[in-house]
Amino acid sequence: MSTIETKKVKFSVFRFNADEDYLPYYDEYEMEVTSEEVVLDILNRIKWDHDGSFSYRRSCRHGICGACAIKVNGRSTLACKERMFDMIDLFGSELTLDPLSQKRAIKDMIIDKNDFWEKHAAVTPYLVAEIDEHPESENIVTPEEEHRLLDADLCIQCGACHYACPVVEINEEYFGPAAFTAAYRFSADVRDHSENRLKDVNEMGQGVWDCVKCFECAEVCPKEINPIEKITKLHQMAFQEGVAENNVAVRHAVGFKKSIEKRGVLDEGGLVLYSEGPAIVKHIPVALKMFKKGKIQMPWNIPTSKNLDEIKKLVKSSSTVEF
Protein backbone atom coordinates (compact mmCIF):
# COMPACT_ATOMS: atom_id res chain seq x y z
CA MET A 1 0.00 0.00 0.00
CA SER A 2 1.36 3.41 -0.88
CA THR A 3 1.55 6.10 1.77
CA ILE A 4 0.47 9.63 1.04
CA GLU A 5 3.23 12.18 1.48
CA THR A 6 2.51 15.11 3.81
CA LYS A 7 4.20 18.43 4.56
CA LYS A 8 3.75 20.79 7.48
CA VAL A 9 2.59 24.29 6.50
CA LYS A 10 1.99 27.43 8.54
CA PHE A 11 -0.93 29.38 7.12
CA SER A 12 -1.67 33.05 7.77
CA VAL A 13 -5.26 33.66 6.77
CA PHE A 14 -6.76 37.09 6.05
CA ARG A 15 -9.84 37.75 8.18
CA PHE A 16 -12.14 40.71 7.84
CA ASN A 17 -15.84 41.35 8.28
CA ALA A 18 -16.80 44.67 6.71
CA ASP A 19 -19.87 44.86 8.97
CA GLU A 20 -17.97 44.47 12.24
CA ASP A 21 -14.22 44.96 11.86
CA TYR A 22 -12.36 48.24 11.69
CA LEU A 23 -9.21 46.57 10.38
CA PRO A 24 -8.40 43.16 8.93
CA TYR A 25 -6.28 40.66 10.87
CA TYR A 26 -4.66 37.29 10.22
CA ASP A 27 -5.49 33.95 11.83
CA GLU A 28 -2.73 31.36 11.93
CA TYR A 29 -3.06 27.62 11.46
CA GLU A 30 -0.50 24.84 11.27
CA MET A 31 -1.57 21.91 9.18
CA GLU A 32 -0.21 18.75 7.64
CA VAL A 33 -0.89 19.10 3.94
CA THR A 34 -1.04 16.09 1.65
CA SER A 35 0.20 15.74 -1.92
CA GLU A 36 -3.40 15.13 -2.97
CA GLU A 37 -4.73 18.48 -1.82
CA VAL A 38 -5.46 21.68 -3.70
CA VAL A 39 -5.72 25.13 -2.11
CA LEU A 40 -9.51 24.85 -1.89
CA ASP A 41 -9.15 21.77 0.34
CA ILE A 42 -7.29 23.96 2.83
CA LEU A 43 -10.04 26.60 2.76
CA ASN A 44 -12.56 23.84 3.42
CA ARG A 45 -10.51 22.39 6.31
CA ILE A 46 -10.20 25.82 7.92
CA LYS A 47 -13.96 26.27 7.78
CA TRP A 48 -14.98 22.69 8.64
CA ASP A 49 -12.36 21.84 11.26
CA HIS A 50 -11.39 25.19 12.82
CA ASP A 51 -13.74 28.13 12.31
CA GLY A 52 -17.20 27.87 10.80
CA SER A 53 -17.39 31.64 10.35
CA PHE A 54 -14.56 31.64 7.78
CA SER A 55 -16.02 32.72 4.44
CA TYR A 56 -15.00 32.17 0.82
CA ARG A 57 -16.68 31.61 -2.55
CA ARG A 58 -16.70 28.14 -4.05
CA SER A 59 -18.94 26.19 -6.34
CA CYS A 60 -17.89 23.78 -9.07
CA ARG A 61 -14.55 22.53 -7.66
CA HIS A 62 -13.54 21.76 -11.25
CA GLY A 63 -11.89 24.95 -12.54
CA ILE A 64 -14.85 26.13 -14.56
CA CYS A 65 -17.08 28.39 -12.43
CA GLY A 66 -14.28 30.82 -11.54
CA ALA A 67 -15.65 31.51 -8.03
CA CYS A 68 -12.77 30.44 -5.80
CA ALA A 69 -9.86 32.62 -6.99
CA ILE A 70 -7.79 34.01 -4.09
CA LYS A 71 -4.18 35.06 -3.55
CA VAL A 72 -1.49 32.80 -2.12
CA ASN A 73 1.57 34.82 -1.05
CA GLY A 74 0.37 37.61 -3.30
CA ARG A 75 -0.05 35.41 -6.37
CA SER A 76 -3.56 35.14 -7.87
CA THR A 77 -4.61 31.54 -8.00
CA LEU A 78 -7.73 29.47 -8.64
CA ALA A 79 -8.03 27.58 -5.34
CA CYS A 80 -9.64 24.45 -6.77
CA LYS A 81 -6.97 24.01 -9.42
CA GLU A 82 -3.74 24.91 -7.64
CA ARG A 83 -1.96 22.01 -6.00
CA MET A 84 -0.72 22.66 -2.47
CA PHE A 85 2.63 21.00 -3.11
CA ASP A 86 3.22 23.32 -6.08
CA MET A 87 2.58 26.30 -3.79
CA ILE A 88 5.01 24.88 -1.23
CA ASP A 89 7.62 24.40 -3.97
CA LEU A 90 7.12 28.01 -5.03
CA PHE A 91 6.90 29.76 -1.67
CA GLY A 92 8.07 27.37 1.04
CA SER A 93 6.18 26.21 4.12
CA GLU A 94 4.80 29.57 5.26
CA LEU A 95 1.83 30.57 3.16
CA THR A 96 -0.41 33.61 3.36
CA LEU A 97 -3.96 33.38 2.05
CA ASP A 98 -5.55 36.66 0.98
CA PRO A 99 -8.62 37.68 -0.99
CA LEU A 100 -7.94 38.73 -4.61
CA SER A 101 -8.16 42.37 -3.53
CA GLN A 102 -7.80 43.38 0.11
CA LYS A 103 -9.37 46.79 -0.43
CA ARG A 104 -12.47 45.15 -1.89
CA ALA A 105 -12.85 42.57 0.91
CA ILE A 106 -16.40 42.06 2.21
CA LYS A 107 -15.80 39.02 4.38
CA ASP A 108 -12.54 37.09 4.55
CA MET A 109 -11.85 35.74 1.02
CA ILE A 110 -15.06 37.19 -0.42
CA ILE A 111 -14.61 40.43 -2.33
CA ASP A 112 -16.89 42.95 -3.98
CA LYS A 113 -16.23 42.08 -7.63
CA ASN A 114 -18.48 44.80 -9.07
CA ASP A 115 -15.66 46.69 -10.74
CA PHE A 116 -14.73 43.51 -12.60
CA TRP A 117 -18.28 42.94 -13.87
CA GLU A 118 -18.83 46.60 -14.77
CA LYS A 119 -15.71 46.58 -16.90
CA HIS A 120 -16.69 43.31 -18.47
CA ALA A 121 -20.08 44.79 -19.39
CA ALA A 122 -18.42 47.94 -20.78
CA VAL A 123 -16.64 46.16 -23.65
CA THR A 124 -19.84 44.91 -25.35
CA PRO A 125 -19.05 41.29 -24.44
CA TYR A 126 -21.45 39.72 -26.91
CA LEU A 127 -21.89 39.27 -30.63
CA VAL A 128 -23.31 42.32 -32.41
CA ALA A 129 -24.90 40.96 -35.57
CA GLU A 130 -27.98 41.38 -37.71
CA ILE A 131 -29.73 38.06 -37.28
CA ASP A 132 -32.00 36.97 -40.09
CA GLU A 133 -34.76 35.04 -38.36
CA HIS A 134 -35.50 33.08 -41.50
CA PRO A 135 -32.13 32.51 -43.14
CA GLU A 136 -32.09 30.82 -46.51
CA SER A 137 -28.62 29.40 -46.07
CA GLU A 138 -26.26 28.50 -43.25
CA ASN A 139 -24.08 31.13 -41.63
CA ILE A 140 -20.79 29.38 -42.14
CA VAL A 141 -17.70 30.15 -40.07
CA THR A 142 -14.64 28.40 -41.46
CA PRO A 143 -12.16 26.64 -39.15
CA GLU A 144 -9.55 29.30 -40.07
CA GLU A 145 -11.94 32.05 -39.02
CA GLU A 146 -12.68 30.25 -35.79
CA HIS A 147 -8.95 29.91 -35.05
CA ARG A 148 -8.71 33.70 -34.97
CA LEU A 149 -10.47 33.64 -31.60
CA LEU A 150 -7.47 31.74 -30.23
CA ASP A 151 -8.30 30.57 -26.71
CA ALA A 152 -10.09 33.78 -25.67
CA ASP A 153 -13.34 31.82 -25.38
CA LEU A 154 -11.98 29.76 -22.48
CA CYS A 155 -12.04 32.62 -19.95
CA ILE A 156 -13.99 31.70 -16.79
CA GLN A 157 -14.02 35.26 -15.41
CA CYS A 158 -12.37 34.24 -12.16
CA GLY A 159 -10.67 37.66 -11.86
CA ALA A 160 -7.19 36.22 -11.23
CA CYS A 161 -5.61 38.38 -13.95
CA HIS A 162 -7.75 41.45 -13.23
CA TYR A 163 -6.61 41.66 -9.60
CA ALA A 164 -3.02 40.77 -10.50
CA CYS A 165 -2.85 43.72 -12.91
CA PRO A 166 -0.93 46.67 -11.44
CA VAL A 167 -2.79 49.16 -13.66
CA VAL A 168 -6.19 48.08 -12.30
CA GLU A 169 -4.85 48.95 -8.84
CA ILE A 170 -3.84 52.47 -9.86
CA ASN A 171 -6.24 53.57 -12.61
CA GLU A 172 -9.93 53.05 -11.81
CA GLU A 173 -10.97 53.60 -15.42
CA TYR A 174 -8.76 50.86 -16.83
CA PHE A 175 -10.75 47.89 -18.20
CA GLY A 176 -8.14 45.28 -17.29
CA PRO A 177 -6.89 42.08 -18.93
CA ALA A 178 -10.04 39.96 -18.52
CA ALA A 179 -12.31 42.55 -20.12
CA PHE A 180 -9.82 42.98 -22.97
CA THR A 181 -9.78 39.23 -23.51
CA ALA A 182 -13.58 39.29 -23.82
CA ALA A 183 -13.36 42.27 -26.17
CA TYR A 184 -10.88 40.41 -28.34
CA ARG A 185 -13.01 37.27 -28.39
CA PHE A 186 -15.94 39.14 -29.98
CA SER A 187 -13.97 41.59 -32.11
CA ALA A 188 -12.11 38.67 -33.69
CA ASP A 189 -15.40 36.95 -34.57
CA VAL A 190 -16.18 37.30 -38.30
CA ARG A 191 -19.92 37.50 -37.56
CA ASP A 192 -19.49 40.54 -35.31
CA HIS A 193 -20.29 44.04 -36.58
CA SER A 194 -19.92 46.12 -33.44
CA GLU A 195 -18.89 49.65 -34.29
CA ASN A 196 -18.06 50.69 -30.75
CA ARG A 197 -16.12 47.91 -29.09
CA LEU A 198 -12.76 48.38 -30.78
CA LYS A 199 -13.03 52.16 -30.34
CA ASP A 200 -13.91 51.78 -26.65
CA VAL A 201 -10.95 49.54 -25.91
CA ASN A 202 -8.66 51.93 -27.77
CA GLU A 203 -9.60 54.97 -25.75
CA MET A 204 -6.78 56.32 -23.61
CA GLY A 205 -7.17 55.85 -19.87
CA GLN A 206 -9.56 52.91 -20.03
CA GLY A 207 -8.16 51.10 -23.04
CA VAL A 208 -5.30 48.86 -24.12
CA TRP A 209 -2.82 51.71 -24.50
CA ASP A 210 -2.49 51.96 -20.71
CA CYS A 211 -1.21 48.36 -20.43
CA VAL A 212 2.26 48.45 -18.83
CA LYS A 213 3.35 45.17 -20.48
CA CYS A 214 4.33 43.53 -17.19
CA PHE A 215 2.95 40.08 -18.16
CA GLU A 216 1.47 39.52 -14.67
CA CYS A 217 -1.83 38.50 -16.34
CA ALA A 218 -0.16 35.89 -18.51
CA GLU A 219 1.52 34.41 -15.47
CA VAL A 220 -1.59 33.87 -13.34
CA CYS A 221 -4.34 32.78 -15.73
CA PRO A 222 -5.56 29.35 -14.53
CA LYS A 223 -6.81 28.60 -18.05
CA GLU A 224 -3.47 29.64 -19.57
CA ILE A 225 -5.19 32.11 -21.86
CA ASN A 226 -2.38 34.69 -21.94
CA PRO A 227 -4.49 37.89 -21.80
CA ILE A 228 -1.63 40.17 -22.86
CA GLU A 229 -1.50 38.32 -26.17
CA LYS A 230 -5.11 39.47 -26.74
CA ILE A 231 -4.23 42.99 -25.63
CA THR A 232 -1.49 43.03 -28.26
CA LYS A 233 -3.94 41.72 -30.87
CA LEU A 234 -6.38 44.51 -29.99
CA HIS A 235 -3.60 47.06 -30.52
CA GLN A 236 -2.88 45.54 -33.93
CA MET A 237 -6.58 45.38 -34.88
CA ALA A 238 -6.92 49.10 -34.19
CA PHE A 239 -4.39 49.76 -36.97
CA GLN A 240 -5.74 47.06 -39.28
CA GLU A 241 -9.31 48.34 -39.00
CA GLY A 242 -8.37 52.01 -39.12
CA VAL A 243 -9.71 52.99 -35.69
CA ALA A 244 -6.33 53.94 -34.20
CA GLU A 245 -6.51 57.61 -33.27
CA ASN A 246 -3.77 60.13 -33.72
CA ASN A 247 -2.77 60.38 -30.04
CA VAL A 248 0.43 60.13 -28.03
CA ALA A 249 0.10 56.37 -27.44
CA VAL A 250 -0.50 55.52 -31.08
CA ARG A 251 2.28 57.81 -32.27
CA HIS A 252 4.55 56.18 -29.68
CA ALA A 253 4.05 52.81 -31.40
CA VAL A 254 4.26 54.20 -34.94
CA GLY A 255 7.31 56.28 -34.04
CA PHE A 256 9.39 53.14 -33.55
CA LYS A 257 8.94 52.22 -37.18
CA LYS A 258 9.77 55.75 -38.34
CA SER A 259 12.96 55.72 -36.31
CA ILE A 260 14.01 52.22 -37.37
CA GLU A 261 13.41 53.11 -41.02
CA LYS A 262 15.67 56.14 -40.67
CA ARG A 263 18.51 54.82 -38.50
CA GLY A 264 17.96 51.18 -37.66
CA VAL A 265 18.35 52.00 -34.00
CA LEU A 266 15.93 54.16 -32.07
CA ASP A 267 16.37 57.92 -31.92
CA GLU A 268 15.14 58.33 -28.33
CA GLY A 269 14.68 62.09 -28.41
CA GLY A 270 13.11 61.93 -31.85
CA LEU A 271 10.62 59.30 -30.63
CA VAL A 272 9.52 61.45 -27.69
CA LEU A 273 9.18 64.50 -29.95
CA TYR A 274 7.16 62.58 -32.55
CA SER A 275 4.93 61.04 -29.84
CA GLU A 276 4.32 64.14 -27.75
CA GLY A 277 4.39 66.92 -30.35
CA PRO A 278 4.36 70.35 -28.64
CA ALA A 279 3.61 68.65 -25.29
CA ILE A 280 7.29 67.67 -25.26
CA VAL A 281 7.95 70.82 -23.20
CA LYS A 282 6.77 68.99 -20.06
CA HIS A 283 9.80 66.70 -20.37
CA ILE A 284 12.30 69.56 -20.39
CA PRO A 285 13.12 69.58 -16.64
CA VAL A 286 14.03 65.87 -16.64
CA ALA A 287 15.77 66.21 -20.01
CA LEU A 288 17.99 68.99 -18.61
CA LYS A 289 19.01 66.83 -15.65
CA MET A 290 19.82 64.00 -18.03
CA PHE A 291 21.70 66.28 -20.39
CA LYS A 292 23.94 67.47 -17.54
CA LYS A 293 24.92 63.85 -16.89
CA GLY A 294 25.64 63.02 -20.52
CA LYS A 295 22.47 60.98 -20.97
CA ILE A 296 21.16 62.81 -24.02
CA GLN A 297 22.91 62.59 -27.36
CA MET A 298 22.91 65.43 -29.85
CA PRO A 299 21.10 64.55 -33.10
CA TRP A 300 24.41 64.32 -34.95
CA ASN A 301 25.76 61.84 -32.40
CA ILE A 302 22.92 59.35 -32.54
CA PRO A 303 24.26 56.08 -33.92
CA THR A 304 23.06 54.38 -37.08
CA SER A 305 22.97 50.64 -37.67
CA LYS A 306 25.53 49.19 -40.05
CA ASN A 307 23.99 47.87 -43.29
CA LEU A 308 21.11 50.31 -42.90
CA ASP A 309 20.10 49.70 -46.52
CA GLU A 310 19.01 46.18 -45.51
CA ILE A 311 16.79 47.56 -42.76
CA LYS A 312 15.25 50.15 -45.07
CA LYS A 313 14.55 47.46 -47.63
CA LEU A 314 12.96 45.15 -45.07
CA VAL A 315 10.79 47.90 -43.58
CA LYS A 316 9.51 48.56 -47.09
CA SER A 317 8.88 44.94 -48.03
CA SER A 318 7.64 43.57 -44.69
CA SER A 319 5.27 46.26 -43.44
CA THR A 320 1.70 45.01 -43.19
CA VAL A 321 -0.12 48.16 -42.03
CA GLU A 322 0.14 51.90 -42.49
CA PHE A 323 -0.92 54.71 -40.18
Binding site: T232, A253, E310, T320
Partner: peptide, 24 residues
Protein backbone atom coordinates in the same frame (compact mmCIF):
# COMPACT_ATOMS: atom_id res chain seq x y z
CA UNK B 1 24.23 45.74 -37.80
CA UNK B 2 21.36 45.24 -35.35
CA UNK B 3 18.25 47.42 -35.41
CA UNK B 4 15.99 48.36 -32.51
CA UNK B 5 13.96 45.39 -31.14
CA UNK B 6 10.73 47.40 -31.29
CA UNK B 7 10.54 47.53 -27.48
CA UNK B 8 7.04 45.87 -27.48
CA UNK B 9 5.63 49.00 -29.14
CA UNK B 10 6.43 48.25 -32.78
CA UNK B 11 4.89 44.85 -31.95
CA UNK B 12 1.59 46.62 -31.17
CA UNK B 13 1.67 48.29 -34.57
CA UNK B 14 3.06 45.75 -37.00
CA UNK B 15 3.89 42.34 -35.60
CA UNK B 16 5.20 40.81 -38.81
CA UNK B 17 7.61 43.68 -39.40
CA UNK B 18 8.91 43.34 -35.84
CA UNK B 19 9.46 39.61 -36.35
CA UNK B 20 11.43 40.22 -39.55
CA UNK B 21 13.62 42.89 -37.95
CA UNK B 22 14.34 40.83 -34.83
CA UNK B 23 15.00 37.72 -36.93
CA UNK B 24 17.54 39.79 -38.86
Amino acid sequence: EASCCGASHLQDYDEFLSLVLNAR
